[in-house]
Design a binder for these strands. Structure first.
Length: 607
RNA sequence: GCCGACGUAGCUCAGUGGUAGAGCAGCGGUUUCGUAAACCGCUGGCCGGGAGUUCGAAUCUCCCCGUCGGCUCCA
């Protein structure tokens, strides 16, 4: 959900005339009015709904007369009209009207959305403000810029269908999005940022770097990793595995399908049915489901025998592949797939151990993410979703309190997400900012009293009696595919050396010089012996320049070019090109080169 | 799921009712070149799938699949 500074016109109240030093919000809100003015001129009979400023821009919702719809081509036309209106420097004129009079006005203008807004105002509101811009009049609490001439650095970006009042049972309106800034320079900079985001798009880089694909025959939201992507993924998993072993996790494996009983008991079929693929029917009418979550399987492992308090905390880890039915319109590359693999673990512990586990878990999580090159975090605490939750208020309070406790004192910003928890418990999400400042939800840590209860889990406590364990669900990458996509975008495809599929491209200047060929082969062998991943570009018929270019396009971190001159000089020095630093070159000795690269890998340097 | 746009060679795209095209990639040859593209030639397509309209469909209509931008959802 993008953070929208919603101009809830329902609060239309006292007018604030014009703003001498308008903020970006004011400017953008004024741009929204200007757009609506242009639209109502160009499309007589258009009904306008609301038009707030949002992050980086603004929008306005419309219903066009008849079955008419905006097309992308209309954006240019509307934009032109806006420029015309802008040049006329039309003042934004405020007025205050008695509520009934305003209602009659919009009734007369045949603007049903505005009438509806007035009707939804609190009973105590008896006066509302309106703004006029040329012939356009809008219910609005302001403030606005002085005149439309201030709104000149803008661009309309896209058109979208939206539900009236955001409720999918309502009719769909058309929303036009735009961006607006005080100066053309700022506008250009913003458009540049959009371009930069497009350049980093993991779907595009996934194809260019031959990392993965979504074959149409496979079905929407289902991915295949190619050798390059597969290697990166394996390296990501290997390091995660190593760290989990060190942190006291034990590894388990579970199947991809299960009888419905399991998810009946867990409650997923009641609470999560929309996300579950339809069942497979067996001959005897037995129903099997693809697993949307791993937790019930791990619970069965816990429950497979009597457990002692001495075994706790029991941390069961699995790269568990799950399948979730995502609505067709929401599938999006690797970040929203229908089949994906979680780095999923469930920690079974006593109530007394819970707090300590959460604290060390959060440390573990942030440390691991930092090793993958992310360093700018904030935390989000999601609380009980009213009406969609199981368990008592007391349990929810305890679990929420424990999470809050663990999250505080981390030196990280903690944002509240009311009602955002799962049906079985509250959660902390770790959010990270990437290289161009976008935020991604990464890790999730959830406290759960419910599943242990539903599955009747218990352990023998020190007194010889039985107690019920607490479960902590946690996925640090979230989903490997998603985390992979985030890294692709964060690094713009130029992975740090320890994750780069090819770490050093070795390029012969001549293919037919035995001494050059031998020198390259020798260097490649020495690098492999040092557990580095060199690649020799000996494609016949390609010139050295073309090979350098290919290595650059493939975002290979380092390039070594060896030719006759090097061999003849015979001083052991090589020409090393650093692709991540604009192709900067330097001379290095072979031993130094290998030492330098292995150190960079060992330290997992982010670039 | 909903609104809109789109789907032509491995990739990026041109082609709007009359014989399917370009660049790159791939393959074959020539070239052996010092840090971002040598040159010549060749191959490559059920124009996403199906049904319809038409003498004739990549092109028009409908259904399905898939992609993109949003909405809703992200439990």
């Amino acid at each position: 959900m993008p953070s929208e500074v919603v101009d809830d016109a329902a609060e239309a109240g006292l007018p604030i005339a014009t703003s001498d030093a308008p903020t970006l919000d004011v400017l953008r809100h004024s741009a929204a009015h200007l757009m609506a003015a242009a639209v109502t001129e160009l499309f007589p009979g258009a009904k306008y709904d609301v038009g707030p400023s949002i992050e980086d821009g603004f929008f306005y919702n419309f219903r066009l007369p008849g079955d008419a719809h905006f097309t992308e081509d209309d954006l240019g036309v509307i934009e032109e009209r806006m420029r015309l209106l802008s040049k006329r420097a039309l003042p934004y004129l405020p007025d205050v009207l008695p509520r009934a009079e305003a209602r009659a006005l919009f009734e007369q203008l045949d603007q049903p959305f505005k009438v509806a807004i007035i009707d939804r105002l609190d009973a105590g509101v008896d006066r509302v403000s309106v703004y006029r811009t040329g012939d356009f009049i809008d219910l609005c609490r302001g403030p606005h810029v002085a005149d439309s001439g201030v709104v000149h650095a803008f661009k309309l970006l896209r058109v979208a269908g939206v539900y009236w009042l955001g409720d999918e049972r309502n009719e769909q309106l058309q929303r036009v999005y735009g961006t607006a800034w005080f100066s053309d320079e700022e506008l250009d900079a913003y458009l540049h940022r959009l371009e930069e985001a497009r350049r980093r798009d993991h779907r595009r880089l996934g194809q260019e770097l031959d990392l993965f694909s979504f074959p149409e025959e496979l079905g929407s939201g289902l991915v295949v990793f190619h050798p390059n992507g597969g290697l990166i993924r394996t390296l990501m998993e290997d390091y995660s595995r190593e760290r989990h072993i060190a942190a006291g996790y034990e590894f388990v494996n579970t199947p991809h399908i299960t009888k419905e009983d399991l998810f009946q008991i867990s409650g997923h079929l009641d609470w999560f049915s929309e996300g579950v693929f339809p069942p497979l029917e067996l001959d005897e009418g037995q129903r099997y489901y693809l697993k949307p979550m791993n937790c019930p399987m791990h619970i069965l492992i816990f429950r497979s025998r009597m457990r002692s308090y001495r075994e706790l905390p029991l941390r069961l880890f699995e790269f568990g592949t799950v399948y979730r039915y995502e609505k067709s319109g929401v599938v999006h590359g690797l970040t929203r797939a229908r089949g994906f693999t979680q780095d999923d673990a469930h920690i079974f512990c006593s109530r007394e151990q819970m707090q300590g586990e959460l604290v060390s878990l959060l440390d573990f999580t942030l440390g691991l993410l930092r090793d993958y090159g992310l360093s700018d975090f904030y935390l989000e605490l999601s609380t009980k979703p009213e009406g969609k939750a199981v368990g008592t208020d007391k349990e929810w309070e305890e679990a929420t309190g424990a999470l809050r406790e663990a999250a505080s004192g981390r030196g990280l910003e903690l944002v509240l997400d009311p009602g955002g928890g799962t049906f079985y418990g509250p959660k902390i999400s770790v959010q990270a900012r990437d290289a161009i400042g976008r935020t991604w939800q990464i890790s999730t840590i959830q406290v759960d009293f419910q599943l242990p209860h539903r599955f009747g889990l218990e352990f023998v406590d020190p007194s010889g009696g039985t107690s019920r364990p607490i479960m902590i669900h946690r996925a640090l990458f979230g989903s490997i595919e998603r985390f992979f996509a985030i890294l692709v975008e964060h690094y713009a495809g130029a992975f740090p050396l320890w994750l780069a599929p090819v770490q050093c491209e070795l390029i012969p200047v001549q293919d037919d010089e035995p001494a050059v060929v031998a020198s390259i082969a020798d260097l490649a062998a020495r690098m492999r012996a040092a557990r580095l991943r060199p690649h020799v570009d000996d494609r016949p018929g390609e010139r050295m320049q073309a090979r350098v270019r290919t290595a650059e396009l493939h975002k290979v971190p380092y390039v070594v070019v060896i030719g006759k001159r090097d061999v003849e000089r015979n001083d052991g020095m090589l020409s090393l090109r650093d692709n991540r630093r604009g192709g900067a070159q330097q001379q290095v000795a072979v031993d130094d080169l290998i030492e330098r690269l292995t150190a960079e890998v060992r330290e997992r340097r982010p670039e």
